[in-house]
Design a protein around this nucleic acid. Structure first.
Lengths: 243, 243
DNA sequence: TCTTCGACTGCGGATATCCGCAATTCAAGG
DNA sequence: CCTTGAATTGCGGATATCCGCAGTCGAAGA
């Protein structure tokens, strides 16, 4: 029974290793990977029972790696261990977890006991253990009222990448007027009122860019998620529209 | 002789403490702070000789805290210890360091020996010790050719916050046409060509939002720096234009 | 079946943005 | 003194974006 630790920070990696050795005496070997790519390799070439994975990593992010690993091995137990409970991360994880898969989502601020309990719960008892704080974000992002629709979130990432209305319309197979309609709803939910003139010479903010800014400051978007979205956009650009 | 460690991650904090105790036997007491605000308090109420400071922290970021601390005490030795060598961080630090101040900038990926050497160099021998990688970024951001002008950087943060051309013009005391002129140069340096049609239905990207996206992915901007810029914007909005 | 509600869509107008062209200013050097 | 180059500004036009209004469509529910 081997456990893989995927974490770029050396100190955290060492800490996780000793914790696993403590909490899981049944564990034969603790493998280590310092980024998502190495993790995928190690899973492919070793008999890995479960994974503890950081979300913020260079090269392949934790979400990317988990997605690929679950694609080949839907039963893999994965315990995510992250610094933040940003909506972007929570959403990203929720999107890729296969139905029936066993996983956990713990914050690094959690105590060592909670971590040990989570390790045993996820790896030995097939429990899904989600940090309370994360759980809150998860629910909120599922509620249509509090958070954003998938459509709105989609269009938000698109404008954050700098796409024009027309390009978004093409990509999502809707009219450009619909894109604007979705944007309008997005602006409302983010409380962006272009005519809300903070000073006497007209509006201070451009709705489009302002939406991206507030989404960033609220944790709806983050650099990692944006990089991932950029990749899928590149793929789309290379794809069907290429002559 | 007391040393203050400012770092939100508990593991890193503990690591720094033992390192300092090893490298600096002369040190009487190691104080700890888990965010920038606490750091400022501790500096005010204790006799602190030098500081090791993380840059990414909740509440007040490392740059904010260092700025305030240096304002009251320009001779304070500060060793920055950061995960990334993002241009935004390097620029932020370079901007606030008083002339003649002793400081260091080390990456967390540096070895423990390098860290110990840096601690002794900065605290005991008044050396400025800058990580080679950071030094590279620093030089590049000083060169006008490679990096961006201060004007261009300024306008970049403004559009990233969602400001309109007119508002930027007001704030920076130039005409809105000049804002567009600066933007044009910015777009050129970021290699953003709106007419670079990736597909057959016109341009894919909106220059303005695209610039923000690429600036983010290149580390010219980051969430922390944006939050700081937002604060100074709020201040300006409350200030002279308020009737 | 009828109603309701939300999403999508087209039209048209008000602004905002992007950019080429050209005149001006100003500072650094030859 | 003259030249050069960079920054600023105005003008004008081509697009892009934002948004109100109104019509269509499909799904959910009475």
């Amino acid at each position: 029974m081997n456990v893989l630790i995927t974490e770029d920070d050396a100190l955290h990696r060492a800490f996780l290793k000793t914790t696993v050795e403590n909490a899981l005496p049944e564990c034969d070997q603790v493998l280590e990977a310092e980024d998502g790519e190495i993790a995928m390799q190690k899973v492919a070439t070793n008999d890995v029972f479960g994974i503890i994975m950081d979300l913020q990593m260079p090269k392949a992010s934790g979400v990317d790696a988990a997605k690929e690993i679950w694609r080949r091995n839907p039963d893999m137990r994965i315990l995510f261990w992250s610094n933040y409970a940003d909506e972007a991360y929570v959403r990203g994880v929720s999107r890729i977890v296969p139905s029936g898969a066993v996983y956990g989502y713990l914050l690094k601020s959690a105590s060592e006991e909670r971590l040990e309990l989570a390790v045993r719960g996820v790896f030995l008892q097939d429990q899904c253990i989600i940090d309370r704080e994360v759980r809150g974000i998860q629910q909120r992002s599922e509620d249509t009222l509090e958070g954003l629709t998938d459509s709105e979130f989609e269009v938000l990432t698109d404008i954050a990448l700098g796409m024009t209305d027309k390009a978004i319309a093409r990509r999502r197979n809707i009219s450009s007027r619909s894109v604007q309609s979705r944007l309008k709803h997005l602006y409302e939910k983010l409380c962006i009122d272009a005519s809300d003139t903070g000073f006497e010479f007209g509006p201070v903010f451009n709705s489009r860019t302002r939406a991206v800014a507030t989404a960033f400051s609220r944790g709806l978007l983050n650099a990692d998620g944006l990089a991932a979205s950029q990749e899928s956009l590149d793929e789309w650009l290379r794809g069907p529209t290429l002559r």
